[in-house]
Nucleic acid binder design. Structure first.
Length: 108
DNA sequence: CTGGTGACCGCTT
DNA sequence: AAAGCGGCCACCA
């Protein structure tokens, strides 16, 4: 009875995993979908321990400014940008057009 | 066991 | 207008 739902981390992974190809989501958006907008920080940590980077496109997660985290350095910060560009996401001045590429779950 | 930190965001002064 | 701080979760010393 302590818990009937999944842990916070599990929920975060579940949401990030649902991010479609060619789109990006913000930490706050995921945090809000996870239950609390303040989990944004936890989202970052959750992706930091990203247990399944193959099914969890953490590179599609960017901050509220549409910028990639400078701490996201696994072989080169450009790596994340390169991956997103490979999906069709264009970076302008190191930023993404959130109005166009932000994952909008309202589309169903 | 306690304290502090981290891939962040939003509110308050 | 800008700057600073708190909040949530999990892991390390």
């Amino acid at each position: 009875m302590s818990d009937g739902s999944q842990n916070t981390f599990e929920r975060i992974y579940e949401i990030v995993r649902q991010i479609p190809y060619g789109q990006v989501a913000t930490y706050g958006q995921i945090a809000l979908l996870a239950g609390n907008r303040r989990l944004s920080r936890v989202v970052g940590y959750a992706l930091h321990v990203n247990p399944d980077p193959e099914h969890i496109p953490c590179h599609r997660v960017v901050n509220r400014f549409g910028e990639v985290s400078k701490a996201f350095v696994f072989g080169g910060e450009n790596q994340q940008v390169t991956l997103l560009e490979a999906e069709g996401v264009r970076f302008v001045d190191g930023r993404v057009d959130m109005e166009k590429y932000q994952w909008k779950r309202s589309l169903f």
